[in-house]
Amino acid sequence: MLIDALSINTCILSPEAIEELNKIRILVVGVGGLGGFVAQGLVRLGAQNITVIDGDVFSDTNLNRQFFCNSETMGRQKAVVAVEEMLKVYPQGNYKAITEFITDKNAALIMKDYDIVFDCGDNIKLKLLLEDFCIKLGIPLIHAGVNANYGQLAIIENKKILPSLYRREAKNRNAVILPQVTSGLQLNLFVQYLHKKHKKNKLYLIDLDAMQISDINY
């Protein structure tokens, strides 16, 4: 049972962090390349309260990289499939699916019920909207963006960075490796956040081609 296996996580989680994992309300926005890995990773870390939101359905172009996409889930709502699979790992989990896209009309109403948000979205408009509402509502945002062999991530708390990053159209075409690496780093930032060890205003830049993670203090 997962509840027994979770004791192994004490190799990276303090008792206080585990207690926080039982309470913290997490919203994962987008259950595609990043979000699929993030959602299943959160379950295996022991997070009890997770909502995934995505208005999209799985299609054949998702097969190369999206964790919950396979021949049986094709055409189904991504958020619903994600929660079904998460509950297979931990049936007692409080996991919910929202089959809508976040817009400026519903963002405040949806996001106000969460303590932390994962930005796993795949478009600039959504990413800017999440940063905007998270800062307004005082909710930390674990941002990430990926393209081919490079990407970036950061915990955004009260200082905006995304309007500077996305002044122009940014590239977005992905295989499986970078989303998997980046979502792992998003989860690592989350674990650092639980231990209050995360670095503020730091942008991490991933370069798989060079096997490097660099950072900029912004």
């Binding site: 930005d119 963006g145 990926v146 393209n147 990053l165 996305y166 940014a170 590239k171």
Partner: peptide, 26 residues
């Protein structure tokens, strides 16, 4: 630089410049 003076931002020596291509995929 969009929070400074864009391409007219003055440099005096000693600066660390990062040239980045952000990614938007998820």
């Amino acid at each position: 630089i969009d929070q400074l003076d864009m391409f007219s931002t003055k440099l005096h020596g000693g600066e660390v410049i990062s040239i980045v291509s952000p990614a938007s995929g998820g």
